[in-house]
Amino acid sequence: MKNEKIEVDIKVPNQTRYLSLIGKIGEDIARTLKRYKGDREELAYHINLVLTESMTNAIRHAHEGDPTKEVHLTISIQESNLVIKVYDQGQGFDISKAPMPKFKCLDEHGRGVFIIHSLMDSVTYREFDGGHVLEMIKAL
């Protein structure tokens, strides 16, 4: 199908218990992408992972764990790209400014942003509607 269009729009409470739900939705979308010539199971895992990492950043850093806040995200197929947007209503957490992990130093934290940058083709973070949006694009 040439004009296969998918857009999923999800809002969940600012709680880590929803990570697996969102990750699974991302995996299932990746598995439907017949045009993707690579390993679809690997793509599914990677989409699950970037959704989990970006949502965790929104929940813990941008929203500082406030359970009354909400995480809003969209997953869409636009032409030959898979586009994931994660909106936050917080002070922001600019992952483009996060340092690269020092592989020789065994730090417990700081690998999430590295993972997102490693697995996606484009990652941007900008102000949007009183909060921020993290946009991650994967070419299919």
């Binding site: 992972l49 065994l106 730090d107 417990e108 934290h109 690998r111």
Partner: peptide, 12 residues
């Protein structure tokens, strides 16, 4: 499935 927090717990 393991994410960066899972890896962080093992590193800890």
């Amino acid at each position: 499935f393991v994410d960066s927090s899972g890896l962080g717990a093992l590193v800890s």
